[in-house]
Amino acid sequence: METGTTYQNYLQTMQNYQLSNGRKEYQAPYAQKFEVIFNKAQEADIKLSNAKEFLHSLSPAELTTLQKYSGLADKIDINSLSNEGAYNLLMHDNQQFDFNNDGTAEVGAAKRMLAVPINMPQDVKDAYISAMNSLSDKDKMTAMILTFDTARLNSVINNKPYTPVKMDYEYLSTQVQNHLNPTNGAYTSDEAKASITAFWNAFNAAYKGEKLQADNSNEQSSDVSKFLKDLHTKGAAQFLADLNTEKIEKQAQEYKDKLIKELGDSPENMNKIEKLVADFKKKLLEEMQNSLDNDKKTVPINANELAQIILDTQHKKTRPLEELLALL
């Protein structure tokens, strides 16, 4: 099998892509015989350079199996095939690739769009696959029009070099809007709109969910690092005292905001509110001191144990903890 980095990364991504039920049902009668051929090809260390040679070693029945499994209309004429067309014949659907970067994957004599375009950023690929896997066959087929590469069509019609279009989030968003709100005489059926909407909702859920998760992870890592740094610098007792003080200030501010909302912010009322807030903070401080006095009677706090408990409770990453422990 080809070992180029771009191809291997694509294979890794495509492991998560699920073929349509219709495609799997079509291939089912030929699947077992195809796997025998596929395994032979792997044993022969099949590559672009020797794929045609390997095809010449197969029997007419085996070539028919490849033809049927791949869904080709005509019998396979090995001598007319390109190296890419020969190689992709020997691969599963999710392993086929556009090696010459002309916008299509040659499979035998056929030229086909890849199920997941190469020219997508990785985060878009991942969300796209997640969305497509969630759709019915009908919705999946309809949604594929969103990634129809017009640059390839322009290349063929105008006999120009093919220049890939970057199919990022903005590109897909534009395609979706063009189909949902067609202009200049264009038309999209209600059924197609429903399929595209189903895809777009699923895509956004996956894409934005992954972005949110990554952002939260970075934010949490920063929070944990700060927590551990403070814990190491101040010591557990002082850290907890500062933490409680921050909580008191927050509660006092919330109490003050509530009083202003209830009583108004006239000068007379503000003087009254300031006094009430001061009394409130005094009460909270007394409660905190009583709590700390009681804690002194119990087992002393161990900084490492405290850090581990909090990290485990919040399901944080362990890297910041490891950094702290390296300092202790």
Score class of each variant (00 low, 15 high):
Asn88Ala: 05
Leu66Gly: 07
Gly85Tyr: 07
Tyr87Thr: 01
Asn88Gln: 06
Ala61Ser: 08
Lys75Arg: 05
Pro60Val: 07
Lys68Gly: 03
His56Val: 14
Asp77Pro: 01
Ser70Asn: 15
Thr65Gly: 05
Thr64Leu: 13
Tyr69Ala: 09
Leu72Trp: 11
Ser59Tyr: 06
Leu63Cys: 00
Leu89Ala: 03
Ser59Cys: 08
Gln67Cys: 07
Asp74Asn: 07
Thr65Arg: 09
His56Tyr: 13
Leu90Thr: 02
Asn83Thr: 07
Glu84Asn: 00
Ala86Trp: 01
Leu81Lys: 08
Lys75Asn: 10
Leu89His: 11
Glu84Pro: 03
Leu89Met: 13
Tyr69Leu: 14
Asn83Phe: 00
Thr64Asp: 15
Thr64Gly: 09
Asn88Arg: 10
Ser57Val: 10
Leu66Lys: 08
Ile76Pro: 08
Pro60Glu: 08
Asn79Ser: 11
Leu90Ala: 11
Gly85Asp: 07
Ala61Pro: 02
Pro60Cys: 01
Ser57Met: 08
Ala86Met: 11
Ser82Phe: 11
Ala86Leu: 07
Ser82Pro: 05
Leu63Ala: 00
Glu62Val: 06
Ser70Gln: 13
Leu58Thr: 04
Tyr87His: 12
Leu58Glu: 07
Leu89Ile: 06
Leu89Phe: 12
Leu72Asn: 03
Ile76Tyr: 13
Ser80Gln: 12
Leu66Glu: 06
Leu66Asn: 00
Leu90Pro: 06
Tyr87Cys: 01
Leu90His: 09
Leu81Gly: 02
Ala73Lys: 09
Ile76Leu: 14
Pro60Gly: 03
Ile76Trp: 14
Gly85Ala: 04
Ala86Gly: 09
Leu72Ala: 04
Tyr69Ser: 10
His56Trp: 14
Ser59Arg: 10
Ser70Ala: 14
Lys68Ala: 02
